[in-house]
Each structure stands twice: as structure tokens, then as C-alpha cells.
């Protein structure tokens, strides 16, 4: 479904991705782990075309993302951003129904609002929040609204960028469970980036570890906790000593 081949990306002299090879099968929940600043977000943005790779190829269903019709391509995707990235000036329901109110997927306003309310309900939010502005919501509620927006058009592929960052453990658990439920219900292909091993446990089918711009290890979720690969062992167990350099 999603195939990354030798993806490179640098920002000035900072080589972020140094040849990423990764395959995500259809319907699979792939979680990419790695320390902060290892290029996980850049990797997702490369797939979406928000960042242009310097070299390499990204294929979705065998089609190079650079040659596909941009609108049709993006219509297949949903994304939950790290800080939810809700539009401050729009009420919650218009954030959720953003894609349904304009462009090729445009629906009548009443229908778009109805769908938005359904999606909000799906993520555990009542109709009372629909007309509030994002700034009036807590961090956890904003994440839920972001999640509702990501699934508003029932996309085939959903990306989650650090879905539990900044949330308390209970809310993080709720978001993880919601993601898992939604992914199973929709049968979507997902890529999640995180450094939260609880999220890995809850969300993943497969796990890949990104470090120093390359995928160091990839395999089924059950194997990640027993892996003998030194990078994975150090990261999963949170060890200060190992091949991953740490600052003290």
C-alpha cells in the first residue's frame, strides 16, 4: 500500500532522512518509534507531499506520489497532527467538516454538520461542543476533535503524529483506545509516529524504529519488546546506556 524506497531529506547541513526503506501493507497499523528529532514527522510529511524528499521514491498503491493527482491523492488521507492543528477561527463542527464544506467532497451545509456531529460522537464528544471554538477546549478534547476531523471523510489512510503527546496518562489511554477502535472499524491503513511505548502496545500491528535517518528495525508488535537489536532494546526499555547517544 505505502512503499518508501531510499528516501533522503536534508535541511541545510542537517541530514534528517538518509535512505528510509519501509513498506506498510493495506489495512496495517504501522507505528514508527524513535527519539525526538529523528525525522519521524518529516517522514510522514514526505508521504503527504508537505515536504519534498531530496532523493528516493514514495509509492502509494504502486503510484509515485509526485505523479498522482494531488486532490485525489489527498482525499484518501486523514491526519491527526501533534497539536491537533485545529483552525482557531472556525467552530469545532466546521473544523471537523472542513473538507465537506469545500472542494470536491463538498456537501450541503446541514449534511456536513450532521456528519461532523456523528464523528464527534464517535470520538466521545457531545453536540454541545460543536459550536465552541477550539481555544475553549482542553488539550484532550482538541485531540479528539482532530481525530474526528481526520476520519470525517472515512479516509483509506490515516496518519497520527504523536497522538498522545502532552496528555495525561488516562487521556492518552483513551485516545489510544479510540484510535485502535476507529482503525479496526474503518479498516484503514495507518502510520503512527510516537515515542510512547504504551501507544505502541495499544495501536500497533507492526513497529519500525527510525534512528539516524534510517529504519533500524521493523517487525510485528509482539517482537519489539523481545528484540535483541541494541537500538530497539535501549529505546523500548528507556536505557541511558547503549548505541543511542544521550545528553546528560
Amino acid at each position: 500500500m505505502i512503499d518508501l524506497r531510499g528516501v533522503h531529506k536534508s535541511f541545510g547541513s542537517n541530514q534528517v532522512l538518509r535512505g528510509v526503506d519501509l513498506t506498510v501493507a493495506k489495512g496495517q497499523s504501522m507505528v514508527i518509534i524513535g527519539g525526538s528529532g529523528t525525522g519521524k514527522s518529516v517522514l510522514l510529511k514526505c508521504v503527504l507531499g508537505l515536504v519534498t524528499p531530496d532523493a528516493g521514491q514514495i509509492l502509494v498503491d504502486g503510484t509515485d506520489v509526485t505523479t498522482s493527482d494531488r486532490d485525489a491523492f489527498l482525499a484518501r488521507f486523514g491526519m491527526l497532527f501533534q497539536g491537533a492543528a485545529l483552525f482557531d477561527s472556525l467552530p469545532v463542527w466546521q473544523n471537523v467538516a472542513f473538507r465537506l464544506l469545500r472542494g470536491t467532497l463538498k456537501r450541503p451545509k446541514a449534511e456536513a454538520r450532521e456528519i461532523a456531529l456523528q464523528k464527534l460522537q464517535r470520538v466521545g464528544l457531545g453536540p454541545d461542543v460543536a459550536d465552541r471554538l477550539p481555544a475553549e477546549l482542553s488539550g484532550g478534547m482538541q485531540k479528539r476533535v482532530g481525530l474526528a476531523r481526520a476520519i470525517a471523510t472515512d479516509p483509506e489512510i490515516i496518519f497520527f503524529d504523536e497522538p498522545t503527546t502532552g496528555l495525561d496518562p488516562i487521556m492518552a489511554g483513551v485516545i489510544n483506545d479510540l484510535i485502535r477502535e476507529i482503525v479496526v472499524d474503518m479498516g484503514a491503513t495507518t502510520m503512527t509516529i510516537t515515542h510512547d511505548m504504551t501507544s505502541v502496545q495499544s495501536i500497533a500491528d507492526h513497529v519500525a524504529m527510525l534512528h539516524d535517518g534510517v529504519i533500524r528495525w521493523t517487525g510485528p508488535k509482539d517482537e519489539v519488546f523481545d528484540s535483541t537489536e541494541p537500538y530497539v532494546t535501549q529505546f523500548v526499555n528507556g536505557l541511558p546506556d547503549g548505541p543511542i547517544a544521550t545528553l546528560r
Binding site: F77, F81, G83, A85, F87, D88, F98, R102, L105
Partner: peptide, 17 residues
């Protein structure tokens, strides 16, 4: 600029806008 810093511009693009 605030929209850019908070990834709202990226969100717009992913929403085909």
C-alpha cells in the same frame, strides 16, 4: 505565522485546500 507554527497551514494542505 501562528498558523504555520501550529501546523494549521500543513493541516490545510492535507485537507486539499
Amino acid at each position: 505565522a501562528t498558523m504555520k507554527v501550529t501546523e494549521q497551514i500543513d493541516a490545510l494542505v492535507t485537507l486539499s485546500t
